[in-house]
């Protein structure tokens, strides 16, 4: 079983978002970068699966050299080796094309449900279609049975269990597992594991961000005395007309 785990590198969840160059570029200065939380889950599950059934886990990141510390973290968590496609990710389509290019030899491709910076939720579906493989999206449970994948996935207002043959693409949703924390031995071993840097294939240039803005700020909170809490309901009913 060879699993390819896609890992994106994103700003820490507490980051205050600001922009430079006339609001056209995300301001990276002083920002701490982390492994996308959903990718931490898919990587952990991939490691658990190969530890029981045998096989290898390769991590892939589309990014520049500054993503290497996060890739090393993935190796320290237990991944066998890593690929970095040396490019600045342009958009989902571009990233997916790079992943699809590298994925053909694998049995499974794991991604996160979405990356918490671009919030596209795109890459998994794009990769699946580029490879003509089945897609299991937002999976909360992933198991292997008789060379098939059995997964639980979120749907509107519930969950469903789906089965797929291999190869296929699966994206991870929270609840899949507890993210693994690298231990000292893992960190030491990660240093000598292969991190192969490959060049990007220049496909797709279909979107570009022309500007960023911050969401409109609230005009200020109107406080209501706890003694007159009922007033809130009257306002919501009469003024806001919400029900």
């Amino acid at each position: 079983m060879k699993i390819l785990v896609c890992v994106s590198v994103v700003p820490d969840t507490t980051t205050k978002i600001t922009f430079t160059d006339n609001d056209t570029v995300f301001n990276r200065s002083g920002v701490q970068f982390i492994m996308n939380p959903y990718d931490e889950l898919s990587l952990t599950r991939a490691l658990e699966l190969t530890e029981t059934t045998g096989g290898s886990v390769t991590v892939i990141t589309i990014g520049e050299a500054d993503t290497d510390p996060i890739i090393r973290k993935a190796l320290a968590m237990g991944a066998t080796d890593a690929i970095r496609v040396d490019a600045s990710p342009k958009d989902g389509m571009y990233v997916a094309a790079q992943i699809a290019e590298q994925a053909k030899e694998y049995d499974l491709v794991f991604t996160g449900r979405e990356s918490i910076d671009y919030n596209g939720g795109q890459v998994q579906g794009l990769v699946a279609e580029m490879l003509q493989w089945p897609l299991i999206n937002v999976a909360t449970q992933i198991d292997l049975e008789n060379n098939e994948v059995v997964a639980s996935r979120d749907i509107d207002g519930g969950r469903e269990v789906v089965k797929s043959s291999l190869p296929c693409v699966i994206s991870a949703q929270k609840d899949l597992c507890e993210p693994r924390i690298p231990n000292m031995r893992g960190i030491m071993m990660a240093r000598s594991k292969p991190l192969n840097v490959v060049a990007a294939t220049d496909k797709y240039d279909y979107t570009k961000v022309s500007k960023y803005e911050l969401p409109p700020a609230k005009s200020g909170v109107k406080m209501i005395d706890a003694e007159n809490a009922e007033q809130l309901i009257d306002i919501l009913h009469n003024e806001e007309k919400l029900f």
Partner: peptide
């Protein structure tokens, strides 16, 4: 051009579709 949420709703990106 469309407006989309980015950075987990902490920002809005204006994205140009060129295809």
């Amino acid at each position: 051009t469309v407006k989309k949420t980015a950075f987990s709703s902490k920002a809005i990106a204006h994205v140009e579709l060129t295809a």
